[in-house]
Computed example of a mutant assay.
Amino acid sequence: MTAFDRDAFIAGLPKAELHLHLEGSLEPELMFALAQRNKIAIPFNTVEEVRAAYSFSNLQDFLDIYYQGAGVLQTEQDFYDLTMAYLTRVAADACRHVEVFFDPQTHTDRGIEMGVVIGGIARALADGQSQLGVTSKLILCFLRHLDEDAAFATLEAAEPYLEHIFGVGLDSSEVGHPPSKFARVFEAARAKGLHLFAHAGEEGPPAYVWEALDLLKIDRIDHGNRALEDEALVARIAKDGLTLTVCPLSNLSLCVVHDLTQHPLRAMLEKGLKATINSDDPAYFGGYLNANWHAIAKALDLSKQELVTLAHNSFAGSYLTPTEKQAHAEAIEAWAERF
């Protein structure tokens, strides 16, 4: 398959995105616009200065600018505009379904009410379905560098809005903050009928993935790269049929991998793991969904069948209904037949 054929195939291939932080889709242009609208001073004079600041070599450096940028988000309309901008962009990548994260503590700690955050996001997700044909589910993430009491307070504050929230996740600084730190709040979330997700095995060791599985009892693993260091863990993930939400350009930007040609995505597939391709924080890591697909497909010379498998995995790992999944599977196969 030539690079041109592969690029064209990826461009129209129906797919889902299962690992996207809405705050991480805040483009410099929108940051500037919101700062002006809300009369907020930011330490940058131009869009180019912001883009230059989006240069980092580890997770913590990224998080520092990530939280700083989120400060321009003040009103329900801001959160609507942020979410709608992402949905418009991902719809152009032939993405049909998204399951997106948001970090309420990043905003409530600044005095922004939970209802303002969720109200804007939920309204945009509804419009994204009606106007763009992109279905969605919303996942509330706990910031793991904060304590479990703060997570419990966040879960309580979200109680009036649970109709909009599908699940809870765990993100932010991984090393030094093992999943076991949040075992009780995940149990409480499960009791409320929420699905459970956690970032594990990005920078943290395989032991963190074991904890996420055994203590948090998660439904899906976000990242999971370092799980491949433990053969017993790989066998467990494969046996349980758990999906991994892999983020190639994020891994490259944060030096989780130093060269995409060495990325473990193909190894995951070969070991029977349900890997998927996602963009994580695309405004910061230089690429939305299809950019990640194009980059990893070129680096690993992925075949048409491997791309089809990854597309199927993205819907199979979602929480769409069986009927919805089947419709997307048929669309994937119809597209594949054209090539």
Rank of each mutant, 00 (worst) to 15 (best):
A8Q: 15
I10A: 09
I10D: 09
G12K: 13
P14W: 04
E17C: 05
E23A: 09
E23F: 04
E23Q: 10
S25N: 02
E27Q: 13
E29A: 15
F32R: 12
F32T: 03
L34F: 04
Q36P: 00
N38C: 04
N38H: 05
A41D: 15
P43E: 11
F44N: 01
T46I: 09
V50F: 03
R51I: 06
D61L: 01
I65W: 01
A70M: 08
Q77A: 14
Q77V: 10
Y80V: 07
T83R: 10
M84V: 02
T88I: 08
D93N: 15
D93M: 08
V98A: 13
F102L: 11
D103R: 01
Q105C: 00
T106S: 15
T106R: 09
T106N: 12
H107N: 03
H107T: 08
D109S: 14
G111C: 11
V116F: 05
I118S: 03
A124Q: 11
L125F: 01
S130C: 00
G133F: 09
V134S: 07
T135S: 15
K137C: 00
L138E: 02
L138K: 03
C141S: 13
L143F: 00
D149W: 00
E156N: 11
A157N: 05
A158V: 05
A158I: 03
P160C: 10
P160D: 12
P160N: 11
L162G: 11
H164Y: 13
H164W: 12
D171C: 13
P178Q: 07
S180P: 01
S180I: 12
F182M: 07
F182T: 01
V185F: 04
A191S: 13
K192F: 07
L196I: 05
F197N: 07
F197T: 13
A198P: 06
H199N: 05
A200Y: 09
A200Q: 05
E202A: 06
E202L: 01
P206F: 02
A207I: 02
E211M: 03
A212T: 10
A212P: 06
L213Q: 02
L215C: 01
K217R: 14
H223I: 05
R226I: 02
E229F: 11
E229Q: 15
L233S: 10
A238P: 06
G241W: 08
T243A: 14
L249S: 11
S250A: 14
M268T: 04
G272R: 02
A275R: 05
S279C: 15
S279N: 12
D280L: 07
P282T: 07
P282R: 04
Y288V: 08
N292P: 09
W293S: 08
K298L: 12
K298E: 15
A299C: 09
L302N: 06
L302G: 06
S303F: 04
S303A: 09
S303R: 11
S303P: 06
E306S: 03
E306L: 08
L307R: 01
T309Y: 01
L310R: 06
L310P: 07
A311K: 10
N313S: 05
S314H: 11
S318C: 07
P322H: 04
P322R: 02
Q326E: 15
A327C: 00
A327E: 14
A331L: 13
A336W: 07
E337R: 14
R338S: 14
